[in-house]
Structures are given as structure tokens and as C-alpha cells.
């Protein structure tokens, strides 16, 4: 969180992320054109009558995005950007690391879910998450993780009758 806002809402230096977001939107606009001229043209759906012409509307939207990006570029050059209100605080490196680790765990959980099945994967995921978020003592964290897993499992399986992932390793409870 490097930038700081002046009274008028203008910033002294535009953050790198602002430029990256803008670049991503411009890339998106170009990507749409690439898709229209590539796969859609190859399928024969980039022209013709309104039924067949699946590129009619994407082209409009791509033009809109590119036009807005040009306006946004002017804003950035004039340093007329506002800081998002919810980020006007300094996050510590510690929190940032913790946040990243959480997303890593979510990633691991999504890999594990179809393999191990709902109950083992979820209990492990929750345990890792609460421990990472500083829940102590550990025995309490374990208790919470297992308890929540079973409560959520019960609610969704028995009351809402959802078929939760079973796992391919043959685990079942």
C-alpha cells in the first residue's frame, strides 16, 4: 500500500497495479478481437444474418472496453484516480502472507476434494485454515474443524439432500 491520497482524492503517484489493471482490460479487448477473427471466423459465425453472427455483440462490447480504457488512460496520466476506500490502511506483510497462504490452501483443497472426498478433505482444510488464522490451543482448533465439518456435512447431506463429493480413494463415512 504505497500510494497516499491528497485531500482532493488525487494521488501523488499512480500505483503499478492501476496500470496493470488497465493493461488487463486492454488485453481483454484485444483478446475479444482475436477470438472474433480466429475461432469465430473459422466456425463461420463472425458474419451473416443476426442469427448466425455471434460476433455482432462481442465486437460492440470490445469497442466499448477499448474506448473506456482510453478514457481511463487519460485519467491515470492526469493522476485522477481515487484510492479504494476499503484499502486506506496499511496491511502488514504478515497479513499479506497469511492471505496468500489461505488461497494456497483453498487451491490444495480443490485438488483434494474429488480425490479424498468431502469429510477428510474438509476437516483437514478447516484445521489448516483456523490454525493459520491463529486459533489456539491446537486441540480446540481440531475440535472446531471436525465439528464444523460434520455439522455442515449433516446439514447439506441430510437436510438439503445434496450429494457431496465422495472421493475416488474409496473413503466413506
Amino acid at each position: 500500500m504505497t500510494e497516499s491520497a491528497t485531500e482532493s482524492g488525487q494521488v501523488s503517484r499512480v500505483a503499478l497495479g492501476e496500470w496493470l489493471m488497465l493493461a488487463a482490460f486492454i488485453a481483454l479487448g484485444i483478446f475479444v478481437y482475436q477470438q472474433i477473427n480466429g475461432p469465430l471466423t473459422a466456425q463461420g459465425n463472425a458474419s451473416g444474418d443476426p442469427v448466425n453472427n455471434a460476433a455482432l455483440f462481442p465486437r460492440l462490447v470490445a469497442n466499448l472496453i477499448l474506448g473506456l480504457s482510453a478514457l481511463q488512460l487519460v485519467q491515470l496520466l492526469r493522476r485522477k484516480v481515487r484510492l479504494s476506500a476499503e484499502f486506506r490502511y496499511k496491511a502488514t506483510g504478515d497479513s499479506a502472507w497469511r492471505c496468500l497462504a489461505c488461497f494456497g490452501m483453498l487451491l490444495a483443497y480443490l485438488f483434494a476434494l474429488p480425490l479424498a472426498g468431502f469429510y477428510p478433505a474438509t476437516a483437514a482444510f478447516l484445521l489448516a485454515l483456523v490454525v493459520l488464522l491463529k486459533a489456539r490451543p491446537i486441540w480446540f482448533a481440531v475440535l472446531v474443524a471436525v465439528l464444523i465439518t460434520f455439522v455442515v456435512g449433516y446439514v447439506f447431506e441430510e437436510l438439503l439432500r445434496v450429494v457431496l463429493p465422495q472421493g475416488r480413494l474409496g473413503l466413506s463415512f
Partner: peptide, 21 residues
């Protein structure tokens, strides 16, 4: 409780594919 869970899981993982079928 976790230990039991892990044990059960390990045993099930070993015999699961055979027993399951």
C-alpha cells in the same frame, strides 16, 4: 479424534478400492 480420523482414512484408503467394489 484427529488421529482416529487419520487412521480410519489411511485404512480406508488402502482397502477401499478393493472393498468398495
Amino acid at each position: 479424534m484427529l488421529k482416529t480420523l487419520i487412521k480410519t482414512a489411511a485404512v480406508a484408503a488402502l482397502i477401499g478400492p478393493v472393498a468398495g467394489a
